[in-house]
Design a protein around this nucleic acid. Structure first.
Length: 390
RNA sequence: GGCCCGUUAGUUCAGUUGGUUAGAACGCUAGCCUGUCACGCUAGAGGUCGUGAGUUCGAGUCUCAUACGGGUCG
């Protein structure tokens, strides 16, 4: 990397007016070959080149979505990364004309496949679709992501469920580091090929180390030296307590390069995001807004509601009076509850649209708060409130 | 009118030769979901077994009567 593929500019802001806050957050602009992302940002998750619940890439434009996320593992299995390469890359394929990040498949292999065998070269496992024997290692993951031609590729890593044995985490971290070196070399080679779809594909490294601070710091220091385009904290929100999660984020973030985007993978609830921004994180992704929406769990600025509840049967108010999304402009809780109760596909679609808008709106408000130097107030006002059920 | 079948949770139905606190599915009520196998997962409420007698230590189960529903034969 280090070829100027990607620029990350931190924007000077009002000095934090708060005292009881570790950091005032970072306001930035991530310049990619496919457009600019204002950070802190939330990446909208569309695992199989589609947001579950019937949301299209066209819808994403109306949701203030700046950057989408798709998954290497799923797309490799179906329709196949060769197919997507033939179709002009993932962005062309799904009609998304903005930045897009692909996850490496590491997490899926470790979370979906019970039958797997790890070697120095990668992982042998079975497809969750048809049980087919598959092998993916750092080189294979880079090749697939190069075929997908995403804006940003993620390194291939091992994501260990917490809590995990210290010795195993150490062995795994070292292997993940060797895999990262291999990822970097392979991505540089692929980017230099004459027939590559995206010769400017960026690569982010992923920090691991479970909930062990010393392993985390050591690993972070090692991967920083590789001078990648960005850095992620992986292996969190996978079983540990919230306390441990914030402790690790708080420990690792200060060790991350100041001038590179920092991505906290798989996090989280609105409160998790707000507090992590205060700890210095720039990028997030999470299935919560879409998955919970499909189950009737809707976010509002007063807390979360379950639209299935009987108390909404004749509720004439919108999901959230303060929300600017068209679902809240047009429909009542009563109608939403009816759609869910009668299992109409429209209910899910509207719910997902609302929650994704809420998340993107949340990020916009966070950026405004950082800009004005009032993130501390924001954390105090919303850090706990938004995650609570009302 | 005669004969036969049925009646068990809101609904559709299980329920063994009579044996602890009568089950399931769906529905209902609520909770959960953190780099998405997932319109999913978990839990809870809800039944004096149509009614009334009888046999029995003990009846949803056996006997009789009766009500209601369905079938069939004059």
């Amino acid at each position: 990397m280090n070829r100027g593929i990607m620029k990350f500019n931190l924007i000077k802001t009002e000095k934090s007016k708060q005292k009881n806050i570790q950091s005032s957050g970072r306001l930035g602009e991530l310049h990619t070959v496919h457009g600019v992302v204002k950070t802190p940002a939330f990446m909208n998750v569309g695992t199989s080149a589609a947001i579950k619940g019937g949301v299209s890439s066209h819808d994403l434009c109306d949701l203030k979505c700046q950057i989408a996320l798709c998954n290497t593992y799923h797309l490799h299995l179906r329709p196949g990364d060769d197919v997507i390469r033939t179709m002009g890359g993932i962005r062309e394929f799904m009609g998304w004309n903005a930045p897009l990040l692909t996850d490496s498949g590491g997490f899926q292999i470790f979370s979906l496949s019970s039958l797997r065998h790890i070697t120095e070269e990668g992982v042998h496992f079975s497809s969750h679709i048809d049980g087919d024997k598959i092998f993916i290692g750092p080189k294979e993951s880079m090749k697939i992501q190069s075929n997908l031609a995403s804006t940003i590729a993620m390194a291939f890593d091992e994501c260990i469920a917490n809590p995990a044995d210290y010795e195993y985490v150490k062995i795994s971290c070292d292997r993940t580091f060797r895999w990262l070196i291999s990822c970097k070399e392979e991505m540089e080679r692929l980017n230099s090929l004459s027939d590559v779809l995206n010769r400017d594909q960026a690569l982010f490294g992923i920090n691991q180390g479970g909930i062990h601070e010393d392993l985390r710091i050591k690993h972070m220091e090692k991967i920083t030296k590789l001078d990648l385009d960005g850095y992620a904290i992986g292996g969190l929100s996978v079983g540990e307590s919230m306390e441990d999660m914030y402790r690790i984020v708080g420990t690792v973030a200060p060790c991350m390069p100041e001038n590179k985007p920092r991505y906290l993978m798989g996090v989280g609830k609105p409160g998790n995001i707000i507090k992590s921004v205060a700890l210095g994180i720039d990028l997030f992704d999470c299935v919560i807004p879409s998955r919970n929406a499909r189950h009737g769990h809707l976010f509002t600025w007063d807390g979360a509601i379950n639209i299935n509840n009987a108390k909404y049967i004749t509720d004439e108010t919108p999901i959230d009076l303060c929300c600017g999304c068209f679902v809240c402009e047009k429909y009542t809780r009563s109608y939403m509850r009816h759609l869910f109760n009668s299992k109409e596909a429209l209910g899910m679609r509207l719910a997902v649209l609302h929650n994704l808008y809420f998340y993107n709106d949340l990020m916009e408000k966070i950026r405004a708060a950082i800009s004005e130097g009032t993130l501390g107030d924001f954390v105090e006002q919303y850090g706990e409130k938004l995650d609570r059920r009302i």
